[in-house]
């Protein structure tokens, strides 16, 4: 029963997405418009970046650490507000939104993290249902009471994220393994019925086997519901394998932008500002 209710909701969501695309509107999903972020007025993390990302693209932001990948990504759901420029999603500028609109926009952008960021002392299913907080009224928030529908959606999402043992759902989040935790985080993101997925080094804390499993899982989900992905990743091989588009950043600017196949040695050197052809940190 639970499964049927949950999955039908997702089919509706998926259906909508497809019909939108069929309408032939070639509008980009995300536009990064002259985005600049500086700290203390002089340290520039993101330097006048312009990007246009279409619906359903699997974008990987690639480059050495400290180059502004995470900062750029966090602008897309306005966890970080730009110093100059703006983010435009579906034609709407985030900078012009009121708090309420911004929260609504955020509720449709799922996000996963390197360290999973689950609430350790809460049960797995509660963690997943936190993805529905935007729809939870004040009284229910104060009494920690999610609806029956939220529970059904949570179980459905946990299954979609590959967690089938129901015994796990009521365990505390910190009792799970790394791979399981990331699956819970993915379920929390799925329950948001996201149009965009942001992923901040989602596999850096996982072993090799789990790395592939998680990236494949994210890819499958995104393909099925035509979700746009923006992911930061420092694994070159994995980026090439999974991404439909790689955006290489260097010192806060775009140094490469194109499909994985065209990311040749010259481009890599440009991203990493290397001259002897040796690339560090691209295992």
């Amino acid at each position: 029963m639970a499964r049927r209710v949950g999955s039908s909701t997702f089919e509706v969501a998926g259906g909508c997405a497809v019909s939108e695309q069929n309408a032939g509107s070639r509008k980009p999903k995300i536009i990064v418009d002259h985005l600049t972020k500086s700290y203390d007025g002089h340290i520039i993390a993101v330097d006048d970046i312009n990007l246009s990302i279409d619906k359903g693209e699997y974008c990987i932001l690639f480059g050495p650490s400290g180059v502004g990948k995470s900062t750029l990504m966090r602008h897309i759901n306005y966890l970080i507000k730009p110093t100059k420029g703006d983010i435009v999603i579906d034609g709407k500028r985030l900078g012009e939104m009121k708090t309420k609109e911004l929260l609504k926009q955020r509720s449709r952008i799922g996000m996963i993290f390197q360290e999973f960021n689950l609430v350790n002392r809460m049960s797995v299913i509660m963690n997943v249902m936190c993805g529905r907080l935007h729809y939870l009224n004040a009284w229910r928030s104060l009494t920690f009471s999610f609806t029956r529908d939220d529970h059904e959606r949570a179980i459905d999402c946990l299954r979609r994220a590959g967690l089938h043992e129901e015994e796990l759902y009521f365990r505390r989040a910190d009792t799970l393994s790394g791979g399981q935790k990331q699956r819970v985080a993915i379920a929390r993101m799925l329950i948001q019925e996201p149009e965009i997925i942001l992923a901040d080094e989602p596999i850096a804390a996982l072993d090799v086997k789990n790395q592939h499993m998680i990236l494949e899982l994210i890819g499958d989900i995104a393909r099925r519901d035509n979700i746009t992905i923006v992911m930061t990743l420092h694994h070159l091989e994995l980026a090439k394998k999974y991404a439909s588009r790689i955006i290489g950043l260097s010192e806060g600017k775009v140094a490469f932008d194109g499909p994985g196949e065209s990311l040749d040695e010259a481009a890599i050197n440009r991203v990493f500002k290397m001259e002897d052809g040796k690339v560090v940190g691209t295992t």
Binding site: N77, L79, L103, M111, F113, M122, H134, S141, F144, Q192
Partner: peptide, 25 residues
């Protein structure tokens, strides 16, 4: 900070972040 960020990214308001992210922790 990551927990707060994760809560924020779901579109939760400040009160919800406090009740579901901070309080249990």
């Amino acid at each position: 900070e990551g927990i707060l960020e994760a809560m924020k990214s779901t579109g939760a308001n400040r009160l919800q972040i406090f009740f579901f992210g901070i309080l249990p922790t």
